[in-house]
Nucleic acid binder design. Structure first.
Lengths: 201, 201
DNA sequence: TACTAAGTACACCGATCTGTTTCCAAACCG
DNA sequence: CGGTTTGGAAACAGATCGGTGTACTTAGTA
């Protein structure tokens, strides 16, 4: 009863009900939003009974929180840990993605209570992302790495939000701005012919 | 039903129930979101009976749509029609605002159906805003006004989304980026230290 | 005055939401 | 084997949602 969360083997429990729930949550929350996804639908897509869901999660809010927690180690390493790229290339590689709406922005908009765990996770994630940007910017020799990191993070969020309003991707526009900002902040790159920046909408 | 919208005196009808509904909607939708605002609460804040609301609007969706329509002529003229500013100053003045979350982004995120009128209104508004930016950019002599307009619009959206995640305003960061972009696009301001020909041509 | 449109009060509907409960089936492991 | 864990089916609670129906009151005006 109560909390038989972990067995001695780490994930010894069951046949992956919890995992299926989180997979279904990721899909449904992305496709139709958090508030529009009911527990019943979530269970049916996950192939899990409601009873089982509430044995793994105390409430829907916990499903949301855990759903967001799964994103933490997701994008960050994939973008910033490519050792075969220069720091400058790594800064710009973050804009070569093709994502729908950032789930953290979605959660921040859909959930009203600022004290909701999901809101805190969104802040943490966005802060961590900006910090990652700043670290790479510092590594690249930027004049004001913190500032550049915050600026690049804002660009990503703008592209994400705008991509939700329209249906087309806006990351190309953000990438063009990012190229300008990076070239502006890295004194060593002043002489680049940098054929970037033409890609408007 | 039908449409006894206007009498000979313009707003002769009733004692402004429709207006109070839209005022309450603006407040509640901003404070707690669209989906979290129920019809009952909307009526009680507006000081209007539910019956009256449904005599003015066929559904909540129509309230949302009309609520968004009210924003159209709102911000745009106030920002871009200051004749005593240079075009460059007007471009940057758009970032001197202090707004919560853009209601169009909020609607685009909260409403799932892409064919919902609110989604179409969001697209229209964002397009109009970028066009306004582009017009002013052209007036300022920018190299690629359309591109600059789209970029500046993206900055605003990024600041808005980011301001929702954190509670602090992010428009200052967006304004800094905007200054860089504008200075970069206006040949008359070419005396800057970071002058570079990346976006020219 | 009397008529009409606008608004109110309030009960009510069906649907859906999160969350709980009871009873039961299967898998795992000593 | 027997017991514990893990899961499923489904009814149910209580609340809230958007939306209606009915009967009554008020305001504006000829």
């Amino acid at each position: 009863m109560t909390e038989p969360e972990k067995g001695p083997l780490g994930l010894r429990r069951g046949r992956g009900a919890r995992e299926r729930i989180l997979i279904a949550a990721r899909q449904l929350f992305r496709e139709q939003g958090i508030n529009s996804t009911g527990i019943d639908q979530l269970c049916s897509v996950a192939g899990v009974s409601k009873r089982t869901l509430y044995q793994h999660f105390a409430s829907k809010d916990e499903v949301i929180a855990e759903h967001l927690r799964r994103f933490d180690p997701d994008i960050l390493p994939g973008v910033f840990d490519c050792a075969d790229l220069t720091p400058r290339e790594r800064l710009l590689a973050a804009f070569e993605i093709n994502a729908p709406l950032c789930p953290f922005i979605a959660a921040a908009v859909e959930i009203q209570d600022p004290d909701h765990p999901a809101r805190a996770l969104s802040r943490d994630y966005k802060t961590a992302f900006a910090t990652r940007f700043a670290d790479t910017a510092r590594e690249a020799g930027a004049a004001h790495p913190e500032q550049l990191g915050e600026q690049l993070a804002l660009l990503l969020d703008g592209a994400s939000a705008r991509g939700r309003v329209f249906s087309t991707e806006s990351f190309a526009t953000a990438a063009a701005i990012a190229a300008v900002l990076v070239d502006n902040a890295l004194p060593t790159a002043a002489a680049l012919p940098g054929a970037r920046g033409g890609t408007g909408s």
